[in-house]
Design a protein around this nucleic acid. Structure first.
Lengths: 234, 234
DNA sequence: CGGGGCGTTGAATTAATTCAAGGCTCGTGG
DNA sequence: CCACGAGCCTTGAATTAATTCAACGCCCCG
């Protein structure tokens, strides 16, 4: 999962061979699909055929450049719709970070629901509004925040999204390399920032993929969300 | 226009006092509005009341952090819809870069058109798809491209959007500071990159705000759009 | 003529990357 | 059962891309 994707734009044959689950499309529309970890739901460059509604698991959406540099756009999980595009090609790839269950809704059926169900249309619009706002927030992070601010912001995001009340901890589902490609940093920098937060007792990080926020106020300040001066960002 | 905005979230009273044009809202719905250069259509934090359809001019959409750092999200011009959000607050501010004419459509009227006109709904969805794709492209630029690649990408974007066939040149409507806040760089770096492109005859830059692409192939390579090795990026 | 706003350029500084080495964990096979 | 290797993660040192700080030039307007 952590290696550079060698094929920026999948050739149709390649894409098909890797997406065995999509064979189900033809058997029955609005089908439940299963994707293994690291399997792709679709590739940048593919022709969109319908919308995926995630039922369980986590998907990463990303873009790659010709030389392999990767930018992860977002993480999608239960309740999210993917590929709600009217473009003739997917501009991003979608890869299962964990095992994923999804509902596939062909474009025509999706269109019909938009037409006929006002409530559905409203919730889709709300979802898209949220996606755009997230994209704005991400642009601010990538364009204007330093490494520590990005990392702190990310940990807050993770907690809001993946916190497990039972243990009080949050599991980091993705590798340092994935985090780096989401935050526009290198994996070494991500590691350094996280361990710096650990050493300064802002977070508890018993394992590389499990953490707990010890000082939320401080973390918010470090994330640049509060008008607080020099905490320990430098 | 180039100074840091001192008020990240406008207080309602402040926002109203600056948006005199909005007084028209109550006189007649679906009203044509005029905004002077540097006037705001709305502020980050305002309650959205409807959608703006740009008829002429250019608008910048941006976010500011508590300490004044600014990230410009996008430029909107004729045909674009702004504030198509279902959130209860604007997450970004919209400022007229030039004199702007816009149509204001109250949210209820916009909803109705969405419900009743399939063609309108489709074109709105297509527009939103495009906005999301642009946001993805921007995230890739901000997260993974170096200063020269960002600058080259921006010049190509400007040309596609603002090229004037009559003169063969493209006018740069915004300041170096605006460009920097769009590209996640400093204004000095933007200036350096542009003049480097000028010195190497990739572009013609007779005035700071007017340019013409002399070597598109080279510029595309520098933008990271082509699998080309070391052009002169460094 | 003077001054403000923008843009350019150089020099010093710094934040983040790159390169390199080593450590931990887990699964597999001897 | 332990050894070994692969895959991640961490950490340090050197390097570099971009920023910061500073000065200056240009152009337009009062």
């Amino acid at each position: 999962m952590n290696t550079i994707i060698p094929i920026p734009h999948s050739h149709p044959s390649v894409a098909l061979s890797q997406r065995v689950s999509l064979d189900n499309e033809d058997q029955s529309h609005r089908n439940a699909l299963r994707f293994d970890q690291n399997e792709h739901l679709f590739f940048q460059g593919d022709v969109p055929r319908g919308v995926y509604e995630i039922l369980s698991g986590t998907v990463i959406l990303y873009k790659v450049m010709a030389d392999g540099r990767r930018q992860i756009q977002s993480f999608a999980s239960a309740g999210d719709f993917l590929a709600m595009t009217f473009a003739d090609r997917h501009d991003i790839s979608a890869e299962a970070l964990t095992e994923v269950e999804a509902l596939f809704v062909p474009r025509a059926a999706f269109d019909r629901r938009l037409q006929e169900q006002a409530g559905f249309r409203r919730s889709v619009f709300t979802l898209i509004s949220k996606m755009l706002q997230d994209a704005h927030e991400q642009a601010l992070l990538l364009g204007r925040k330093c490494a520590m601010e990005r990392t702190a912001s990310f940990l807050i995001f993770l907690k809001e999204r993946f916190h497990e009340p039972s243990t009080g901890f949050t599991t980091i589902q993705m590798s340092r390399s994935d985090i780096a490609d989401y935050l526009g940093l290198t994996l070494e920098t991500v590691s350094r920032m996280m361990n710096k937060l650990k050493r300064s007792n802002v977070i508890d990080l018993p394992q590389p993929n499990t953490f707990r926020i010890l000082n939320m106020h401080r973390l918010l300040a470090l994330a640049g969300e509060v008008e607080d001066a020099d905490s320990l960002a430098a």
